[in-house]
Write a protein that binds this DNA or RNA. Structure first.
Lengths: 179, 179
DNA sequence: ATAGTTACAGAACAATATGTTTGTTATCAT
DNA sequence: ATGATAACAAACATATTGTTCTGTAACTAT
C-alpha cells in the first residue's frame, strides 16, 4: 500500500476517533472529519464513499486485530473443557482492552449499533462451536443470549467501568452465563 | 388535546411506522414522512423539532403503554417469591407483543440504539428492586446483565422469532439468567 | 536519472435536505 | 357566533453532500 495512502487513511481514522470523543456519530459531518484530518475534500471521497463506509472500515480494522489469530486457529486450540475456553475469551478481552481508546467512542448512537453488530458477528463464530445443547431452550435463543450478553459486557466494561481487569470481566461473565 | 393535533400526530406516527418497514431510520428523510403522512411541511415542524424528537416521542408513547401500571403500582405487587416476578415480566412481554407491529421497525440502525436505551431505562427500575446480592460479582454488573439480556431477548423475539408465546419467552429468559 | 503512474490539493459545481417565515384558510372550544 | 388555534401552501436562506476539474507533488520501476 502506498505510503501516502496509509498516511491519509490514518489521519482520517485518528480524526474520526478524536471527534467521536466530543460528539455523536450522527451529529458528525464529513466536513468536520476533513478539517480535523487536515486533508482535501476530494481526498476523503477518494478513500471512502460515505461516512458509513469509513465507520465500517474502522470496525473491520479493529476486529481484524482483536480476532486475528482467534477464529482461524481452529486446529491449534481445543476447548474441550470450559476452563480453556474461558482463557480464550479472556484473551479476546485483552485485545479489546488494547484498542480501548479507539473503541470507546464507538458505543453511542447509530455508531454503537453498527459496532455491536460487527462484534456479534465475530462472537457468533466463537461461541457457536462451544455451546452445548439444552433440550428445554432453543439453541438459537441460547446462542443469541450468550453472544449478546458478552457484547453488552464489553460495552459495560470499556464504556464506564474500565478499571476492572480482563480476567475479572471474564469471571463475571462466566459466572453469569451457562455455556 | 385538540382533535386536529391528535389527528396529525397519529398521521405522523403511522406514516413513520409504515416507512420504517421499508427503509432504515437514518435513510429516512423528514420530507418522506411528510409526504407519507400527507401533511404540510410547517405542520410537521410545529409538532416535532427534528426526526429524533419524533422517534423519542414515539418511544415514550409505547413505553407509557407497556409499563403503564407496572412500575407505579409498587404497593399492589409484592414480588417476594421468584414466581410472581416471572409473572410480572411475562405480563410486560404481553404488552410488548400488542405493540409488535409498531416496535418491529424500531430495532435497526440508530433507531434501535435509542429504542433499546429507552427500554433499558424502564427495565432498570423493574429489575433493581428484584435483584438479590452476590458477594463475588458487582451489583452494577449483574443489574446491567439482567437488563441487557432481557432487552436483547425482546429484540430477538419480536424481531425474528415472534412465533413464540410471551410465556415461553419468559421461561427461556428465567432459565438463562439468575436474578 | 527519467518516464509513467498515482495520490493529493484546491476550487467550483449541482443536488438535496433542513429548518424558518409569511399570509391565508379551516377547524376547534365555549 | 366568535376568538383562538392549528393546518396549509409557498417561498426562503442555509448547510451538507457527493462529483468533477486542473495543476502539483510523491511514489515506482526500469
Amino acid at each position: 500500500m502506498d505510503r501516502r495512502q496509509r498516511k491519509t487513511r490514518n489521519a482520517i481514522f485518528q480524526a474520526f476517533t478524536r471527534l467521536l470523543e466530543k460528539k455523536t456519530y450522527s451529529a458528525l459531518t464529513v466536513q468536520e472529519i476533513i478539517d480535523e484530518a487536515d486533508i482535501s475534500r476530494s481526498t476523503f471521497y477518494a478513500h471512502f464513499e460515505t461516512k458509513d463506509e469509513l465507520l465500517k472500515a474502522m470496525c473491520t480494522d479493529i476486529f481484524n486485530h482483536v480476532f486475528s489469530h482467534e477464529i482461524m486457529s481452529e486446529e491449534h486450540h481445543d476447548f474441550s473443557d470450559k476452563g480453556s475456553f474461558q482463557d480464550h475469551i479472556t484473551h479476546i478481552l485483552c485485545h479489546l482492552q488494547e484498542k480501548q481508546q479507539t473503541i470507546k467512542g464507538l458505543f453511542s448512537g447509530e455508531c454503537g449499533e453498527i459496532f455491536m453488530r460487527y462484534l456479534k458477528e465475530y462472537l457468533y463464530q466463537v461461541f457457536d462451536r462451544q455451546l452445548v445443547d439444552d433440550k428445554d431452550i432453543p439453541r438459537e435463543y441460547r446462542l443469541n443470549h450468550a453472544v449478546s450478553s458478552f457484547a453488552e459486557t464489553v460495552r459495560w466494561w470499556l464504556g464506564r467501568h474500565s478499571d476492572y481487569s480482563p480476567e475479572e470481566i471474564g469471571r463475571f461473565y462466566f459466572e453469569s452465563v451457562d455455556i
